[in-house]
């Protein structure tokens, strides 16, 4: 079961990552060129997924949109890990100290702001852009990774090999990086996959309400927003970008589940 999930997930992820990579050098049609005579055409031989209200090729837009989605979600996960993991390691290394308390309460505070609210505040202050969407999603990822790292690290600090390292005179920072970090990597990869998929959903949602990537950057969320008023006579404009999001997120989730089963069959983490 786990293996099948992993393969299906990896295939879906590979398809969309591949589409994003290919879009950097080639797309079927230039999406910055308007072709009004061919607007709102259904799928055909010339345009596999049809065209939108400006006559742009939807397949090309989805490929370029994949690039935006993946880039935003990937950088956001990077921010979350880059800040969250060291914070979690520090908190675990100094468990019970004032520093630990400060880090964990800070995490609770960020958790109290739903990610969408952070994004709204950032947009209100700095304006809407893909960069601000990344920051908003990234900030929300920090406490996720900090908590996970801390709880994973805490149980490792009681292990004999850590004790041995302390006896050998290694400091807390060195033990954290040399002995603790390599042993929480599996946890981080699984959670990273899940946060990646949540990031793609969040980016789509933000772009849909106009707080994410701005034109002319292609974005799945904005394609859906554009299609909304035309859904009754051009449903293909709404269907394809939606399926792109669904399949990408599904692929990442299946891959996360599969990886988790592979790393540790007993580990059944609850996803909140």
């Amino acid at each position: 079961m786990g293996n099948r999930n992993l393969i299906l997930g990896a295939v879906l992820t590979a398809i969309f990552t591949g589409a994003a990579l290919i879009s950097m050098i080639w797309v079927p049609y230039d999406i910055t060129v308007l072709d009004i005579p061919n607007k709102i055409k259904g799928p055909s031989g010339a345009h596999l997924l049809g065209t939108d209200h400006f006559g742009r090729d939807i397949l090309s837009m989805i490929m370029a949109g994949a690039r935006t989605s993946i880039a935003v979600a990937l950088v956001a996960v990077g921010i979350g890990m880059g800040l969250g993991v060291p914070l979690g390691l520090t908190a675990a290394a100094h468990k019970g100290s004032l520093l630990d308390e400060l880090i964990m309460r800070g995490n609770d505070l960020i958790f109290a702001f739903p990610s969408l609210l952070i994004a709204i505040m950032i947009t209100a202050v700095f304006g809407a852009s893909a960069l601000n969407a990344i920051i908003a999603i990234g900030i929300f990822n920090v406490p996720v990774f900090a908590r996970l790292t801390r709880s994973g690290a805490l149980s490792l600090w009681t292990r004999d090999y850590v004790l041995a390292a302390r006896v050998a005179g290694k400091g807390a920072a060195r033990i954290s990086f040399e002995h603790i970090l390599p042993n929480v990597t599996n946890l981080l990869i699984v959670q990273g996959t899940i946060q990646f998929s949540l990031g793609i959903l969040a980016e789509a949602g933000l772009s849909y309400v106009g707080l994410g990537a701005q034109p002319p950057t292609a974005s799945w969320g904005r394609m859906l927003a554009d299609s909304q008023t035309m859904i009754s006579f051009a449903p293909h404009m709404a269907l394809f970008p939606g399926f792109a999001i669904l399949l990408t997120v599904l692929g990442l989730n299946l891959m996360g589940d599969g990886l988790r089963d592979m790393f540790d069959p007993r580990l059944r983490r609850v996803r909140g």
């Binding site: 949602g205 669904l246 997120v249 599904l250």
Partner: peptide, 22 residues
């Protein structure tokens, strides 16, 4: 439920509008 977690809810909302409203 695997699908339910992966579907963007605003897209699901649009599809419901298409089917049940339009």
């Amino acid at each position: 439920t695997q699908l339910g977690v992966a579907i963007p809810n605003f897209w699901f909302a649009m599809l419901m509008v298409l089917v049940f409203a339009i």
